[in-house]
Design a protein around this nucleic acid. Structure first.
Lengths: 115, 115
DNA sequence: CGCGCACTTACGCAATTCTTCAAGTCGTAC
DNA sequence: GTACGACTTGAAGAATTGCGTAAGTGCGCG
């Protein structure tokens, strides 16, 4: 395909690039949730959540269905769960590196002062 | 840790949410590249590339080192390669779904017209 | 030293994304 | 039918991000 695939990738990652949307995907990868349930676990306004859900829907990552008086959401691409997990690993690595660096700097600074 | 991990995740994904940055990571996961080499493969202005590299550096995903008259970059977190691969899988899935949906709609529309 | 190459930083403007408020839809229950 | 709860949509302003031009840094070489 001559179409820029890395463009699609960037778009995909951008849709993951929001705390509320990450939170939604994490909750939904445990089990399906109604909107008001999501709302209990994510501290934002209903309308805002709805907008973020719309973003995820447009990206094709979640699906909605009506059931009784409420709307249920589910992840439509199961691999997302794996992705979130590997992201967690990477982030731990990066954060750990940063802590080490910070500690080194702190130690060096202390050594400098004491000398 | 009481610190919102999903916040860090969102930030992480946002740094991946740019075509040039994706491109850089893909090129760097093949082998280390000098900036001017990256420039050959990425059609943007030097200063722009530099900015994107700075973003990746701040996120701790790449490292730079000077060698001769040029600056070499390398990925500092090897797992990124895996992440890009699983992203590709997911995207293929999502895009395929969309094509199906589009086809269905087209078929339905055609059926509607012919009736 | 001084020039040029390879790259980076500053800065201002355009474009995108986020957030909130207000209004609207859809089903259910009274 | 109308009132209410559960959501969604629209629109507008604030906040971020992206990009180009221009200016700067650092090195190696004649």
């Amino acid at each position: 395909m001559a179409v820029p695939l890395y463009q699609a990738k960037a778009e995909f990652f951008r849709t993951l690039g929001h705390p509320a949307r990450i939170r939604v995907l994490e909750l939904l990868s445990e089990r399906d949730h109604a909107v008001h349930e999501l709302l209990d676990g994510i501290d934002i306004e209903p309308s805002n959540l709805s907008q973020q859900l719309a973003v995820l829907r447009r990206a094709g990552l979640v699906e909605q269905r009506r059931e009784g008086g409420q709307v249920l959401y589910s992840v439509s691409v199961p691999e997302v769960r794996d992705l979130l997990l590997s992201a967690r690993v990477i982030i731990r690595g990066v954060l750990a590196d940063r802590v080490e660096l910070r500690d080194e700097l702190a130690t060096a600074a202390a050594a400098g002062r004491s000398r």
